[in-house]
Design a protein around this nucleic acid. Structure first.
Lengths: 357, 357
DNA sequence: CTGAAAGCGCTTACAG
DNA sequence: CTGAAAGCGCTTACAG
């Protein structure tokens, strides 16, 4: 708090009942111990025990007295001292492609919320999906002595995460999955199937897919789900109907333009992200193609804007917040040494005007 | 890294050249010192000095040898130990209304970027603009021993920040200003003036304003700028032309509906936020009011979506990223004890189809 | 049930 | 120029 050096005046503290703070900084365990008239170790034990456990360490009278003084003085443990001693920091590092992305911001909110509930603090940073950033930011997090990491930017087939796992570093993935690493994701294959089934049921037969980045399991799984479901219905989606690109509006715009050029206009477009769907709608509008009469459009994620669009967007609701919470809780379980398994959350189809013919 | 207790095997370390790690956890200063054959204090001094300063503390031969071993072993200082000793954590807490909000996510990106450059780490959390959260999250940040705080959720007239300042807590504001507290903001009054000047120059005379939350200086200043500039042009904006509401699309929708009800349709609407502008456009479209022929629309912030809309949006570009950087750097200067002054960044008008008649 | 001691990994006066 | 010591605020065997 104060800029002045606090000096080594630890012994000069009053016996007990001294009510003034003397500007000597935050309350320490020693101050509490002195005021109660007991050893710091006793205070430490009481503070770090539940009501029941505490009984094993101290008389109930002692427990009451300590708790009273702790509350009265507003004691807060110094986390740096505790971390130094216990070798656990209660810190988690989170890497996301970009926090500006509504989807990842929401996932992170879930992570942060669950972390706070568990007394954990998080650092977040953007990797912009660039491998060199992923590596350097991970090392930076590690140098901050995080207990574990959560990646929202996993790249399919990239050995980076394998290397990390081999080093014994604990981490989970959110939003995107990769290999056998523990992850909390939406069941994107199922999501894709829901889209295909809806489109087929409403009479569409030629589906174009804005698949997103080729290194992201999200877009790939959603695409695979559509392809599977169509195949089961006897419809084969040609390769040129699947185009990759960015997950934002400009990315969707470009991908849509490529889609139209290379195969003519389909009767449905599935954008694996709502923002890409907005870009797609822009292109169609520019070309005088009407939605949903000429082309149905489906997005993914059920972003708030989806319902606000001039033509409200049919989309898949994915539990982004819950995904973040699960990713954090999985990591914590791993750190406790418990066996953990990946979580696939259920997607849900939300039908709106963009597919209602 | 490893879950097993690392044990007190500090003395059992090889003399020098021992290349294996023995799983004894991260490299410590002591290991470096032992390998170089020098006292830890010497290593500490060299590590924490610039090239020039180091000369005062050690022979250039010593400096080289230490630097070599530090690099070879990949030594990283334990920040908890250093914080405990120095009483400075290198940690900054950031409170924003909500990270899902593109504007605040971007401001935070700027904060985080500048922090990383300066070797500082940040914690972010959402307050949802609720006073009880602002208080509790601030205390939580303080219990994490942050050196200072950055608030993106300041409420005009709220004594909370005054109380904090009185407690000697160091903080800066971003995005919104409040009282005399140090802040890094866009010059929102100027931004409002730019909007009014453009609207007046293109023949508009009856401007409705979606002013946002009444506790946020952003919306209020932007509104004030419009009112001022209009007054100077001899046009008085009636109070019922100014409506408050949320800064998102639904908020803009509701505010617009109230605006239309209570005073008929204006010939221009200034939404103090791009997302609110999107909501406004939705309402107008539903009612068959055309943009820009019947009503011109202007947003604020120059969000990427603004250019992607069916009717591209005239808006004010505000340097959100730079605002975050400035907020962090101001805080750091304060912590160094330097005199600091608030920063007002220049807004810029971006004219698009929504006002081009 | 409670205390005393050691030690986590650093930094920084204080000596020399 | 370098070393030795103290101490930041905790936790945790180890005694009793």
């Amino acid at each position: 708090m104060s800029a002045q050096p606090v000096a080594q005046a630890a012994e000069a503290r009053g016996t007990f009942g001294g009510d003034m703070d003397k500007g000597s900084g935050p309350v320490t365990l020693r101050m509490i111990a002195d005021e109660v008239g007991v050893n710091v170790s006793t205070v430490s034990r009481v503070i770090n025990s539940s009501d029941k456990e505490a009984r094993r360490w101290a008389s109930s009278d002692m427990i009451d007295r300590i708790r009273t003084v702790v509350a009265a003085r507003g004691y807060q443990r110094n986390p740096h001292a505790a971390s130094l001693r216990t070798r656990r920091s209660g810190l988690v590092g989170v890497l996301v492609p970009r926090l500006q992305d509504f989807v990842l911001a929401t996932v992170y909110e879930g992570i942060e919320e669950a972390a706070t509930e568990q007394g954990i603090s998080t650092f977040v940073t953007n990797s912009l999906d660039r491998p060199e950033n992923q590596a350097s930011r991970t090392e930076l997090m590690l140098s901050r002595r995080v207990d574990g990491l959560i990646f929202g930017d996993a790249h399919t087939g990239d050995p980076f995460l394998d290397t990390l796992a081999k080093r014994g570093i604990k981490f989970t993935l959110v939003s995107r999955r990769s290999g056998d690493h523990i992850s909390a994701t939406c069941d994107d294959i199922m999501g894709g199937r829901l889209v295909a089934e809806h489109l087929l049921a409403t009479g569409r037969r030629d589906i174009g897919i804005l698949s997103g980045r080729d290194y992201a399991s999200t877009g790939n799984d959603r695409t695979a789900g559509v392809v599977q479901a169509c195949l089961e219905a006897g419809i084969r989606i040609r390769p040129e109907r699947i185009v990759h690109g960015g997950f934002d509006a400009p990315g969707g715009r470009q991908a849509t333009e490529r889609l139209l050029v290379q195969g003519g206009c389909p009767d449905a477009i599935f954008a694996t992200n709502d923002f890409a769907a907005i870009g797609a709608m822009g292109v169609l509008r520019d070309r005088g193609i009407t939605v949903p009469d000429d082309v149905a459009i489906v997005g993914y994620n059920d972003t708030p804007l989806a319902a606000e669009l001039s033509i409200p967007l049919t989309t898949i609701h994915s539990p982004m917040h819950e995904m973040g919470r699960a990713g954090l809780n999985l990591l914590l379980a791993m750190l406790r040494g418990e066996p953990v398994e990946s979580v696939r959350l259920a997607p849900e189809l939300i039908v709106r005007a963009s597919t209602a013919s």
